[in-house]
Computed example of a mutant assay.
Amino acid sequence: MSEPREINPMLRAALEYGPVLAFLVAYLWLKDNTYSFAGTEYDGFIVVTAMFVPLLVLATGALWALTGKISRMQVATVVLVVIFGGLSVWLNDDRFFKMKPTLIYILFGGILAVGLMRGQSYLKYVMEEMMPLQDEGWMLLTKRLMIFFFGLALANELIWRFFSTDTWVYFKTFGLTAAIFVFFMAQSKLFEAYGEKKDQS
Rank of each mutant, 00 (worst) to 15 (best):
I7T: 02
I7G: 01
N8Q: 07
N8M: 08
N8A: 13
P9G: 08
P9A: 05
M10Y: 15
M10P: 00
M10H: 15
L11S: 04
L11N: 10
R12S: 09
R12L: 13
A13M: 14
A14W: 09
A14N: 08
L15E: 02
L15R: 06
E16F: 05
E16L: 10
E16H: 05
Y17A: 12
Y17M: 14
G18T: 05
P19W: 02
V20Y: 07
V20A: 14
A22Y: 02
F23H: 06
F23M: 13
L24K: 03
L24R: 05
V25F: 14
V25K: 09
V25L: 15
A26V: 03
A26E: 02
A26I: 04
Y27M: 13
L28G: 14
L28A: 03
L28E: 13
L28R: 14
W29P: 00
L30G: 01
L30C: 01
L30S: 04
L30M: 14
L30V: 03
K31W: 00
K31V: 01
D32Y: 07
N33M: 14
N33V: 00
T34K: 09
T34I: 04
T34V: 11
Y35Q: 01
Y35W: 15
S36M: 11
S36Q: 13
F37W: 11
A38N: 12
A38Y: 09
G39E: 02
G39H: 05
T40H: 13
T40F: 03
Y42W: 01
Y42T: 07
Y42H: 14
D43R: 13
D43V: 02
F45M: 12
F45N: 05
I46D: 03
I46E: 07
I46N: 03
I46G: 07
I46W: 04
V48W: 02
T49K: 09
T49Y: 11
T49C: 15
M51H: 12
M51K: 06
M51N: 01
F52G: 03
F52E: 06
F52S: 07
F52D: 01
V53L: 10
V53I: 08
V53H: 02
P54R: 12
P54L: 09
P54Q: 12
